[in-house]
Amino acid sequence: MNSWNSVWKIGGIVLLAYVIVRGFSTPLQPGLVEASPTRLSPGKATVSLSAVGQPFLRDQETLEDFQLVLRSEEGLLKTQVLDISEHRVTASVNIPTVLPSPALDAFLFTPSSGTLFLGNAFFVENAAEGIIPAGFVAPAPDEAAPLLGFSFPYQPNIMESIRNLLWHVPMWFAMFFVMGIGFVASLAQLRTGQVNWDHRAEAAVRTGLVFGVLGLVTGSLWARWTWGAWWVSDPQLNGALVTVLLYSGYMILRAAMDDDERVGRLSAVYNVFAFIMLVVLLMVLPRYTESLHPGKDGNPGFNSYDLDNSLRAVFYPAVIGWGALCYWIYSLRLRMNRIEHHLLTQ
């Protein structure tokens, strides 16, 4: 029993150390971020595209291995790659006077990093609508299977901040985990009236609040980077803020009373009501607000396609590690509550 007690604590810390090291040292897969110039006219032009993430150019790779193709609706437009450097590709392109659509998507076929894509990379002015003339059409290139090694997936807008997934998301998981413990403890407190259950509920809510605030802070930082604002009105964010407010109310309610029996009973009643309202809030409201947050409809969560195997290999340990740390803090707080109670009632 005692050995198991140290095993899960040490295991959790080891997992978190692994998550921190792996989470910050793993390179990001390359992705195209910017095209220049963005506006083109029919005729010859030189274009360049810049990329972030690990370099898509490796040793012993030559210009011939790379191919840049522009797509206008279904038509493919060929280009001539002029120069490749670590995070930049330059190419010359001959733009015909007729195009199916003036918006061009860019596809960079690389020998080892797979295909890089930038939607609406260029806009062609003064081009008539029609099918691309035969001389300009590119053949459909062969796609090489990417050999990326252990790396995090590139997501437009999110880019390097994808590492926040290992902090922000498991913190909310951990919070819901201990808030769940608190809810069950409050139900048991109402059934039995034993002060022991109240100690559990208090410790759970207090720990959950710490993780809730951390979740809000990491989420707010992430929102600033990806959406451009520290806070937006969004069901997920409303739910998160209300959770923190509700449980702060719980702590204030406790602090406003002295007598142990009354504290236990009333705070348990409030906790049960709050938890059920929270479930309603998180299940009903998202149907009425469009959400920017991943995991909501029209905005797939990370698990659908971007949580690839490399990210999984760090994300799951992060969930377990943060959960273990959270449970550890909870159990310490519980012990403090019990000792305090013991000293005061002696």
């Binding site: 209300v242 406003a256 607000t289």
Partner: peptide
């Protein structure tokens, strides 16, 4: 039930609980 509570306690406890209703 809280003897020392003023009107503020109702507001502190109530406003977060009322947010879903207000949004709808």
């Amino acid at each position: 039930q809280v003897q020392s509570a003023g009107a503020a306690l109702s507001a502190v406890l109530g406003l977060p609980l009322l947010l879903p209703q207000i949004i709808l």
